[in-house]
């Protein structure tokens, strides 16, 4: 079932057209890896889907509701969570960071505490609770950011290169957590170059190249290229 989609989405920086996507539809409960060369627009696409950046043109739909980016609707922000490549942690505590989204949503203190405790256990962060967030390693920050997203039970999770610049152990732990998200049937789009992530079971593949988006074995994308070119792109992605 279609969850989040965009049509005729374009983005340029100055005279350079970054991408032009005719349609992109994310299915409920499916996980996608978004691949492409550096500078191909992967992060920008995720940021647009999350409402952090505004496209030049395009329309979106979430289930049966349409939206655009002028402004990005508040109700959709509650469903879609974006995590930076290098997540930012607020200068409070690990627990407060995880509780931030719950506080924003007005979750009452007792329930918030219970949910944060569950998220801490899920991401195995108990031993880091007393550590100031700014003293955490890259992998630990990534896990705190994933716990901060997990606790909100988002319908759509957008992750920008979650395993980039991590050592082997941190990568393994991060990928384990991502498996948890996938198992929970969260619709996830993960921009990455990490082969271990790309090869996770049931992971669909999106490839952004030369401003066009094509899809792997489960094609749900069309681009503004001619049919033959789109077919060629799709073949290249497989």
């Amino acid at each position: 079932m279609s969850l989040l989609g965009v049509t005729t989405l374009t983005k340029s920086f100055a005279a350079r057209r970054l991408f032009s996507i005719d349609t992109l539809t994310l299915q409920t409960g499916e996980s996608y890896v978004l691949t492409g060369e550096n500078g191909s627009g992967k992060s920008t696409l995720l940021r647009i889907l999350a409402g952090i950046e505004v496209p030049d043109s395009g329309l979106g739909h979430y289930q049966d509701r349409c939206f655009n980016w002028q402004p990005y609707p508040d109700w959709l922000r509650r469903e879609v969570i974006y995590v930076h490549q290098q997540p930012y942690l607020f200068h409070t505590s690990v627990a407060d960071n995880i509780a931030y989204g719950l506080r924003v949503r007005g979750v009452e203190a007792n329930q918030r505490q219970r949910l944060v405790a569950a998220a801490i256990a899920w991401a195995r962060l108990t031993h880091l609770l007393a550590t100031p967030p700014q003293k955490l390693s890259g992998g630990e920050r990534q896990r705190v950011a994933l716990a901060r997203a997990w606790v909100l039970k988002p319908k759509v999770l957008l992750l920008d290169e979650p395993t980039a610049n991590l050592d082997a152990e941190s990568r393994r732990q991060t990928i384990d957590l991502l498996r948890g998200f996938c198992a929970a049937r969260t619709t996830a789009v993960i921009a990455c170059h990490d082969r271990d992530l790309i090869e996770l079971p049931d992971m669909r593949r999106l490839d952004l190249a030369s401003g066009q988006l094509c899809v792997g074995s489960f094609g749900i994308v069309s681009s503004s290229t001619s049919p033959s070119m789109a077919c060629e792109s799709t073949t290249r992605c497989r």
């Binding site: 940021r47 999350a50 409402g51 952090i52 508040d74 922000r77 509650r78 969570i81 974006y82 995590v83 930076h84 290098q86 997540p87 930012y88 607020f90 200068h91 409070t92 931030y100 989204g101 924003v104 949503r105 901060r148 909100l152």
Partner: peptide, 24 residues
């Protein structure tokens, strides 16, 4: 800039974003 973006991405309202930024 990620501080504001993170607050936005986590669904904060404009006053909450302002408060978060001032605390940061």
């Amino acid at each position: 800039p990620r501080a504001r973006e993170t607050a936005v991405a986590l669904g904060a309202s404009a006053p909450r974003i302002a408060w978060t930024m001032l605390v940061e």
